[in-house]
Design a protein around this nucleic acid. Structure first.
Lengths: 219, 219
DNA sequence: GGCAACCTGACAGCAAGCTGACACAGCGGG
DNA sequence: CCCGCTGTGTCAGCTTGCTGTCAGGTTGCC
C-alpha cells in the first residue's frame, strides 16, 4: 500500500509520515508542488495526501493536472483555507475527501482508511462540448480549433459550465461560484460577463433556459 | 437516484429534501431512528444522509446495524457534535463522509455528488410515471421519450407531483409549494398552469380527483 | 336546477434576460 | 506622475416570453 504525502511544513510532514507508516502505508513525502505533480503522474499510489498551500505550484493546480491526465488515485486534500467555497472547489477539482487544518492525526488516518477501502476512480474531465474546447492546463479556449482570448473571470465561468455541462446552471449558483456569496454583486454582473463571452465565442455556444440557467450547447 | 435523509429537525429536514431533490435525487425523509434503520435495511438507496442526533435510536447505532447486516450504500453523516473523536468513531462505524453542523447546503450537495460518483452510481436521475419521465438533472421532461419544453414553474409543479405520485396533491399544497404562503395567488393561477401543462403533455398525464387534488396518471 | 369545483382561451403586465455605454480600479510604461 | 490599456461592475433601456387574471364555459354532485 503506497502513499504519497505532499506537505511543505516539515513538522506536519514528519507527523504524516510516521502516522501513515504506523497505519501500514509505505510513505513517500515531498514538499514541492512540481515534484509532487511529477511523482503522482508517473508513479502508482494507493493514496495521496495533498496539502493545498504549497510553494512553487498550488496544490489545487497539481490535483487538476493529475485529473486532466487521467490519474485516478484517491486524493485526500488538506488545507488551512477553510471557507466552504474552497472546499467545494477542491472537491470539484477531483478531491475524494477533504480535511481542514488543524486536524487530528487520528482523524486523518480514519479518513485515509475509509478512502482506500472504497476503490473508486475519477475520470478526467475531458474539456470539450460542441464547438467549444477548454485546455485546463493553459487556461486556453478554442472554438472549432481556433484560439479565442478570454479573461480569467470568463474562463472560470466557462470551466464551471463545462464541469456541469449535463445540466443548466442557475445564475445564483454561478454568482456564488464566481464571487462567493459574502461579497454580493448585482445579478446583472453575470449577465454582462455572459454577453461579453457570447460576443467573443459567437452564437450557439452558451445557451439560456429561461428560469433554469445557462448551459453549453451540445453538438 | 434514490436518497434517504434521516433528520429529526423538521426545518433542516425540509431543506435537505428540497436541496437533494433539486440535485436530482428522489428523496425520502424520516426523523426516527428505528424507521431509518428499517428503511435502510430493506430498501435500496444510492445515498443516505444521516444525522447522528436522533431520538429513539442513535444514528451511529443505526449505521453500525446497517453495516453489520452487509448494507453498503454510501452514508454521509451529519452531526452537531463536532469533536474529532466522534468523527473518527463515525467513520469507523462505516460512514463514507462526514459533515459537521452547521454546514452549507451547497457543500453537502457537492459532497453527496462526489460520494455517489465515487461509488459508481452513474445512473441518470430519471423518474417515471406512466408515459411521463422527468430528468431531474437536466431539468428535462419527456413523453414516451419525446422531449417536451416546459417552463421553470411547470417543471417545479411536475417534480412535486412526481415526488408525491402515490397520492392526489391538493391545490392548497401545490400553491404553497410553488409560491410560498406569504405571497398569495388566486387559486385560478394554479389551474392555468395545469391547463397549459396538459396542452403541452397531452391527455392522460395529469389527472384530477375532484375535491382531493391533482396526480400523475400511473401506467 | 343549482352550486361549487374545475377548465380554458385571451390578454396584459411584468420579470428575466440582453446589450451598449460608461465609470472606475489596477497596472505597466514612459 | 501621468497616460493609456485592460478587465469588470453598474446603469438604463430594451426585448422576450412566462404567467396571473379575467370572463365565460364545462363537469360533477346534491
Amino acid at each position: 500500500m503506497r502513499a504519497l504525502a505532499v506537505e511543505d511544513d516539515p513538522r506536519i510532514a514528519g507527523d504524516l509520515q510516521s502516522a501513515l507508516t504506523a497505519a501500514g502505508f509505505r510513505v513517500e513525502v515531498t514538499g514541492d508542488g512540481e515534484d509532487a505533480w511529477f511523482l503522482g503522474d508517473t508513479e502508482d499510489y494507493d493514496l495521496v495526501v495533498l496539502d493545498l498551500g504549497l510553494p512553487s505550484l498550488d496544490g489545487l493546480a497539481v490535483l487538476k493536472r493529475w485529473r486532466a491526465n487521467g490519474r485516478t488515485m484517491p486524493v485526500l486534500v488538506l488545507t488551512a483555507r477553510g471557507t466552504w467555497q474552497e472546499r467545494v472547489e477542491g472537491i470539484e477539482a477531483g478531491a475524494d475527501d477533504y480535511l481542514p487544518k488543524p486536524f487530528r492525526m487520528e482523524e486523518l488516518i480514519a479518513r485515509a482508511r475509509a478512502l482506500v477501502r472504497r476503490t473508486g476512480g475519477h475520470a478526467a474531465a475531458f474539456q470539450e462540448a460542441g464547438d467549444l474546447s477548454l485546455d485546463t492546463n493553459r487556461m486556453g479556449v478554442a472554438i472549432r480549433g481556433v484560439q479565442v482570448q478570454v479573461t480569467a473571470l470568463e474562463y472560470r465561468l466557462l470551466a464551471y459550465l463545462m464541469l456541469h455541462r449535463d445540466r443548466p446552471v442557475p445564475p445564483s449558483e454561478l454568482l456564488e461560484h464566481l464571487y462567493g456569496d459574502d461579497d454580493a454583486r448585482e445579478a446583472n454582473a453575470l449577465e454582462a460577463v455572459i454577453a461579453r463571452l457570447r460576443r467573443k465565442l459567437g452564437a450557439g455556444i452558451i445557451g439560456t433556459r429561461r428560469g433554469f440557467g445557462y448551459f453549453l450547447e451540445a453538438t
